[in-house]
């Protein structure tokens, strides 16, 4: 059906910076725009994309069974309860750590390409085999990082590896931005980060306690809590991916009267 499927790798190098959360929320936002979207959990050793989407109890098969022809692709795809345009495909189960190879990944993604407009690959942390597998099938990439020295360093390493594999374009999402700390120069600024990484910025995501709540509930923020600061950031990122020109939030402005600015944002955009 879709001929111009975009296969996007979501990676970071460092763990815990928000790859899986971004994948889940982008998936929901894109699906909501009417785009057939598949999220592929390539982090099969420690898989938790299904938890974030609240789909853990619906998984019966994984990509592994599809490759071994024990089941059909549509049996392994788990459709989201509320957002029917979104499907999850777990790459494997945690008990089998070494079955998947870059070629397997390519096969699976090629199958998905027939049915979907977007394939988002949630990459495992690290730069070892798991990352190299996940990278094999991707055409473009989003690198997630936090405004911290260690996360930026790891992101830099990952970008280097993506470059040697000629994956482009590579875009940057700066996650867990705290406007107050940035203003007080207690945190790396946006310029500090983009200066080192030299990538086009796809979006900023503000630090938001609601993220933890939504993760535990298995309901991504973009699904039900569209008014939370992070949810807005996520859906803006989804729109930018689709080519819409949406201005970036300014952390400095966020800081001066956070609540006021927040209310203003609520009135202006979004559904």
């Amino acid at each position: 059906m879709a001929t111009d499927t975009r296969v996007i790798l979501i990676c970071s190098g460092k763990g815990g910076v928000g790859k899986t959360t971004l994948t889940a929320n982008l998936g929901i936002s894109l699906a909501r725009q009417g785009l057939a979207t598949a999220v592929l959990d390539a982090d099969f050793g420690l898989r938790n994309l299904d938890l974030l989407l609240g789909l853990e109890n619906r998984i019966v098969y994984t990509a592994q069974e599809v490759l071994e022809e024990e089941c059909r692709l549509d049996q392994a795809l788990v459709k989201h309860k509320q957002e029917s345009n979104l499907s999850l495909l777990p790459a494997g189960n945690p008990r089998m750590l070494d079955w998947i190879k870059p070629d397997d990944m390519k096969k699976i993604v090629n199958m998905l390409k027939d049915q979907f407009n977007y394939v988002l690959i949630d990459c495992p942390a690290g730069v070892e085999d798991g990352f190299k597998n996940a990278m094999a099938a991707a055409q473009e990439a989003i690198v997630v990082t936090n405004p911290e020295v260690s996360a930026v360093r790891d992101a830099d390493r990952v970008i280097g590896l993506l470059n040697t594999n000629s994956i482009k374009p590579v875009k940057l999402v700066l996650n867990r931005v705290r406007p107050k700390m940035m203003a007080n120069q207690e945190m790396l600024s946006i310029d500090d980060v983009t200066d080192i990484l030299a990538l086009p910025l796809l979006g900023l995501v503000l630090e938001d306690e609601q993220v933890i709540v939504s993760t535990n509930r298995g309901e991504p923020l973009t699904l039900n809590s569209l008014n939370s600061p992070a949810a807005k950031c996520y859906s803006n990122i989804a729109k930018r991916l689709q080519g819409e020109d949406i201005p970036f939030i300014d952390p400095a402005e966020e800081n001066s009267g956070f609540a006021a600015k927040f209310r203003k944002l609520m009135q202006t955009k979004i559904f």
Binding site: R153, D156, R157, G160, N163
Partner: peptide, 10 residues
């Protein structure tokens, strides 16, 4: 002569 950025780990 090398043209391009050398990133972490390279």
């Amino acid at each position: 002569f090398h043209q391009g950025t050398l990133r972490s780990g390279e």
